[in-house]
Design a binder for these strands. Structure first.
Length: 841
RNA sequence: GGGCGCUUAGCUCAGCGGAAGAGCGCUGCCUCGACACGGCAGAGGUCACUGGUUCAAUCCCAGUAGCGCCCA
């Protein structure tokens, strides 16, 4: 047997060499002949491809890959698909900027349209279908860039198992799941106040909200009692006075007890308003009595609903005040005042009405500046308004205690890594205050697969939607006709109209186990991989992706979609601040891979503890690179002798002591990986490996260069240890371990069995032999270092003060110690451990 | 304002009830038959702060402060 050990091994080119070889040899191809208990299935997060490639993307995926590689080596067939999250607003925005276009659904499809070389300026309006074509073109480029990055990083993904959340298969799964929710009554439509982004012209869900601090001002307005005396109200939104439906005060508030049940009139508009008691009114806030408008904030929605108040919306979905003067304003003065506000945006209307109120003497004192939290869409630039709109919802427990408890229990049953992340899920579920709004008034997404009949009088029958068959999915109701209708009757009396909306991106992403496992379309595959073993993901999407996936699986399958979930930490910039946009753009993974090598980036990612926030650290990457190089060089040394793999040859006490230490390392690394703790597994293997090179290799070196039985013991021990170390490090450093493996072994190290304790049977010596010998060697090195001489400098004598046990252990490896220390003489005296070194002249 | 996490050597982080650890950086030495994309050695810390529990606390408990994430 001839080993193919290069003279000067190098890391250069290993990524390209091995990623090609793995692809050609189907190293990571999923074998679906295996049964469920032989399979480890991973519900990989589909990265959002419309963003740039950044270090946050790399971090979690590499950690998951290390776990996947470990599982594969333990004999599991790993189902490790990759998806791309390409639907939704980020893609639309990117297409708008990249090509300089905007979607105008009223335009007809232009079959001649081709993507421009340069972005249009000003932006050119194009049809919905042309717009969606551009979304596909751009996301495909992005997906290729991601795949290249993942391959260069060595992710052991089965690249035949890929999906995109907008592809035909995902749309089919997403629409089928929705129709099942609809059939079971879990999905429902409702005309209701929704949080509305006026720029995106779309409803926004609870999970997408952020609060932002905004400067505002409290105006104290005078409403009038029947006797003409004022009731003072503090508000930051005086422009909503025309939308006012009532005043509310706390039931225990004695100041207003007499007023409750009476009627007051609003300033300027002179609308009659009931005064009502409600416990949500805060006596400490402002004057303690509040105006209820439809709708200024979410509390208004609660009051409006619970008190059954009239609906008086003034802000349209466009974000402007309605043009027509509302009919509930019946005084001439009031109608004149409203015309001043018509078609203004809220901030403009606020300035105008403030002036009008002031002129009319309705304002008390000066407005008082205040900083308050205002709700925004997380990607939006203007405050959300609340408008009335017909939307689709999925029940999630926000309005149902029993379902909420079920969702909490499912969370409790999951195996969370790290455990403390579970609390974040619990708090989110406990804080849900409404069902999940899934319809979005957008273009690039999975369409809601419904039509509605148009009655003969032209009205739309929203209560009896027309439903496609599951076989016909996916459908685009805006271009296909419902069963039993033809296209000619679209929009006509007696015909139909399409639901114009698409689903929330999470409504599809929440089905990644079903999409990847080909639910219903490939029942055989699905039963082999579902429920999955592991969902790895980021901490910030526990409330969205994790919760929604758990919900959909519970509703459809009555079970959790996975056995466990691992939550990775947050990436920080080198100053341990939150990763800033600018820094993130500077530090992209590919140039770093060029500079340090993929192994170095993987090493950095795997050094981050599960769930621990981790700073981008080039120093750690350098250490990773050094480790990879060390693997090459140490392997060259270990394989440089007689090619004996006979375990019976391993007889020397030092060699057997080394194997004892290695066995302990194997056991610790295995335990860590079994708990998904790739970081501890790496650290254990790494520390052991460095000790192996620093101490054992130096001690065994001289004997290894000789021949005879004691030399053969070293040769066999070196090769056995190397085989174990390569396998221990392979999950973290897949390229370099595979490279070395190829010098002397058949097949891929990644398809070789993880080291087993049984391999060490009959070979384990007393570990203290190596420990004490290394201590004495270290003392000799220290003496030489202090004397500023070479480590090769001869030593006249070494005197070891030690207990009888320690001395006995040292004697068992005395030949190796003498050779490594360069001495002919080691003497032992009884006493506490101490080493005296006399250097030769 | 609430929840969760973090705070250990100049830096990045392990350790988490029984005499403070690693790597980087720094200093010094060493080109010796795996490795200068090296090796060896050395210096460097009232384990954020204040209380408490314990024979014993970096580790457990309570509080304070700073940082981060999630949410109001």
């Amino acid at each position: 047997m001839t080993d193919l050990v290069p003279k000067k091994p190098s890391l250069d080119g290993l990524e390209a060499k091995w990623s090609e070889r793995w692809e050609a040899e189907h190293t990571y191809r999923f074998d679906r002949a295996k049964t469920r208990d032989e399979i480890f299935s991973i519900d990989t997060p589909p990265p959002t491809v419309s963003g740039s490639l950044h270090m946050g993307s790399v971090f979690g995926y590499v950690q998951t890959d290390a776990i996947a590689r470990y599982q594969r080596m333990t004999g599991k067939e790993v189902f490790y698909p990759m998806g791309w999250d390409d639907n939704g607003l980020p893609t639309e925005r990117r297409v708008q900027n990249f090509y300089g276009v905007r979607c105008d659904p009223s335009l007809p499809h232009d079959p001649e349209f081709a993507p421009p070389q340069e972005p249009y300026d000003p932006p050119r309006p194009i049809s919905r279908r042309n717009f969606i074509d551009l979304c596909h073109i751009l996301t495909e480029e992005d997906e290729q860039a991601f795949e290249h990055l993942w391959r260069t990083l060595g992710l052991s993904v089965d690249w035949t198992q890929t999906y995109a959340t907008i592809d035909r298969h995902s749309r089919r799964v997403s629409q089928r799941a929705f129709l099942r929710n609809l059939a079971r009554g879990e999905a429902y439509a409702q005309e209701a106040p929704v949080l509305w982004d006026v720029d995106f012209q779309s409803a926004v869900a609870q999970a997408e909200l952020v609060d932002k601090e905004r400067q505002g001002a409290f105006y104290r307005l005078a409403f009038r009692r029947p006797d003409g005396t004022p009731v003072h109200i503090d508000t930051t939104r005086p422009e909503l006075v025309p939308a006012c439906a009532a005043l509310v005060a706390h039931p225990d508030d004695e100041r207003y007890a007499a007023l409750v049940g009476s009627t007051v009139r609003s300033p300027l508009f002179d609308v009659a308003l009931p005064v009502i008691a409600h416990p949500l009114a805060e006596p400490d806030k402002g004057t303690g009595i509040a105006m209820v408008c439809t709708w200024g904030d979410l509390t208004d929605v609660v009051w409006w609903r619970e008190l059954d108040l009239p609906t008086r919306p003034v802000i349209e979905p466009t974000g402007r005040f309605r043009a027509a003067t509302p009919d509930w304003i019946d005084s001439e003065e009031g109608r004149t005042a409203y015309r001043e506000l018509a078609e203004l945006f809220p901030n403009q209307a606020r300035r105008r009405i403030a002036a009008l109120l002031d002129e009319g003497g309705h304002v008390v004192g000066e407005p008082r500046p205040v900083t308050h939290a205002v709700k925004f869409y997380e990607k939006g630039d203007r405050p959300l308004e609340i408008v009335s709109s017909r939307q689709w919802y999925i029940r999630n427990g926000g309005r149902n205690e029993e379902l909420r408890r079920t969702m909490l229990n499912l969370g409790d049953e999951l195996d969370w890594v790290p455990d403390f992340m579970k609390v974040r899920y619990r708090h989110w579920v406990e804080g849900l205050n409404g069902d999940w709004l899934i319809s979005r008034q957008r273009f690039f997404g999975v369409p809601i697969p419904l039509w509605y009949p148009v009655r003969d009088d032209g009205g739309v029958d929203y209560d009896n939607p027309l439903i496609p068959t599951e076989e016909s999915l996916p459908v685009d109701p805006s271009s296909a006709a419902p069963p039993g209708y033809d296209e000619g009757s679209r929009g006509r009396p007696g015909g139909f109209i399409a639901d114009p909306d698409v689903m929330d991106t999470w409504a599809t992403s929440s089905l990644t186990p079903q999409i990847a496992g080909h639910w219903e379309d490939d029942v055989d595959l699905f039963t082999r991989v579902f429920p999955m073993d592991l969902r790895p993901q980021g901490p910030e999407i526990i409330r969205t992706w994790l919760f929604a996936t758990l919900l959909r699986s519970h509703l459809e399958h009555g079970s959790s979609p996975w056995a466990g979930t691992s939550i990775n930490g947050w990436i920080l910039d080198p100053d341990r601040k939150k990763m800033s946009k600018s820094f993130d753009n500077v530090v992209t993974p590919l140039p770093l891979i060029e500079e340090y090598g993929a192994e170095a980036i993987r090493y950095w990612a795997c050094k981050g503890r599960p769930g621990a926030d981790t700073a981008v650290d080039f120093g750690v990457m350098k250490i990773g690179r050094r480790l990879a190089i060390k693997v090459l060089n140490a392997s060259r040394f270990a394989l440089g002798f007689g090619a004996t793999d006979r375990k019976e040859d391993i007889t020397e006490p030092l060699d057997r002591a080394m194997l004892a230490a290695l066995l302990a390392t194997v056991e610790q690394a295995t335990a860590a990986f079994d708990e998904f703790d790739y970081a501890r597994a790496l650290e254990t293997a790494e520390r052991s490996f460095w000790q192996w090179t620093d101490d054992y290799l130096e001690l065994a070196k001289t004997r290894a260069y000789g021949d005879g039985a004691t030399s053969r013991s070293a040769h066999a021990a070196l090769r056995m240890a190397l085989s174990v170390y390569l396998r221990l490090l392979a999950p973290t450093l897949p390229f370099v371990c595979e490279e070395v493996w190829s010098w002397w072994r058949q097949g891929s190290v990644h398809r070789t069995a993880w080291p087993q304790p049984e391999e060490f049977a009959g070979l384990v010596g007393d570990p203290v032999v190596l420990e004490h010998t290394a201590e004495v060697l270290s003392a000799v090195r220290g003496a030489k270092s202090t004397a500023k001489v070479s480590m090769r400098a001869p030593v006249e004598s070494v005197t070891v003060s030690a207990s009888e046990e320690v001395a006995a252990a040292l004697r068992r490896a005395e030949g190796d110690l003498k050779a490594a220390a360069r001495t002919e003489s080691i003497e032992y005296v009884p006493g506490d451990l101490a080493v005296t070194v006399r250097l030769a002249q």
